[in-house]
Nucleic acid binder design. Structure first.
Lengths: 182, 182
DNA sequence: GCTGATCTTTGCCAAAGATTAAATGTTATG
DNA sequence: CATAACATTTAATCTTTGGCAAAGATCAGC
């Protein structure tokens, strides 16, 4: 689908950095200017938004083989409002903005790749929005492994609740009332 | 930012269609395979999702100078689940898939343009998701004109409520309780 | 294996929002 | 301009979800 020559790839990766992060490290702080995209080789990163009350909201969970950053802020060259938290020891490749820009201008299919990636995350968000409208919290909970396989063994329940848009307490109750039915 | 030559533009538009739609017409039905993108020159189109109970949810409102279609389904070449309803007499340009594909393969900056458009709508969705998490329905209502200027004179209130994710009745109450405070 | 920290569950009460139904307003169209 | 179709408001009631506090459960580091 995408054709990238050896030499293109080599040039692209020349200024990329391979780096390991420990659980609980912060890849990117709110208020910072995002100048790199992370590609997760292994591990798990949470995208988190803190509101005025200090409540944390889990906007996204990024697993292996995913790109992650405050993409909105990256594109707009504005300050990020998200924090990127490492939930599991993570091996990531850091793609600096300069490399990405180089890819767009010098790689034959750089813009095509960029388009496909943007489209991919558009589709993800479209689904997220759809689900918020037509599924109940319980239904969203029951189907979350479609999007994040094995998530229950990797992420604490209160973060899943937060991702679903409900409190951990409420999620606990939903599960309970489900149990009593069967 | 984007450079498109006269001849490229001419070739691209050759198979595009300019068409007028009357209020209440349906641009695209759920269950159809989307094979075109609409560009709205003037008018207003609602993207609507109907759930199992038959309740309609306003996913998006597309104003002048916007592209609209079930972009997710268009990209994935799957059946659409949205309906596109014309809320005001609308003048649209129909961009068939073949033209768009031609643009990607033959226009010098076709993929770049495609990338920028996908990025633009990604940012829109990112904001929508953020707002859903950190703003109350009332706050979302009060700030909706940031995204859709003059919307109150163009769209019935119950559709705005639906876009915000609440019932029209509840929106009416929110407005009332606001009035009594001042 | 302790111990403190972090998570989850539970109960009680409060608040937000949905549902239903009815009254009132507004708008389109013959 | 009459009337039907469509929108909004209001009130009463019900359901869902949140806030708080306390009790258990689980986990990580020593």
């Amino acid at each position: 689908m995408i054709n990238i020559s050896e030499s293109e790839m080599e040039n692209f990766l020349k200024n990329c950095l391979s780096k390991k992060f420990k659980k609980k490290e912060i890849l990117s702080y709110p208020g910072s200017l995002p100048n790199e995209v992370f590609f997760i080789e292994s591990g798990l990163v949470r995208v988190c938004l803190t509101d005025q009350n200090g409540t944390e909201h889990t906007i996204h969970l990024a697993l292996e083989n995913e790109f992650i950053c405050d993409y909105s802020a990256f594109i707009r060259k504005e300050l990020s409002i998200y924090s990127l938290e490492v939930l599991e020891d993570t091996h990531a490749i850091i793609l600096p903005r300069s490399s990405i820009d180089w890819g767009y201008t010098h790689m034959k299919e750089g813009n095509k790749l960029g388009r496909l990636i943007a489209e991919f995350y558009f589709i993800y968000q479209d689904n997220r929005i759809k689900n918020q409208f037509i599924r109940t919290p319980k239904e969203r909970y029951d189907s979350i492994t479609e999007v994040f396989p094995n998530i229950h063994n990797r992420v604490p329940q209160h973060m899943i609740a937060s991702y679903l848009g409900i409190t951990p307490i409420h999620l606990s109750r939903l599960k309970k009332s489900d149990r009593s039915k069967s």
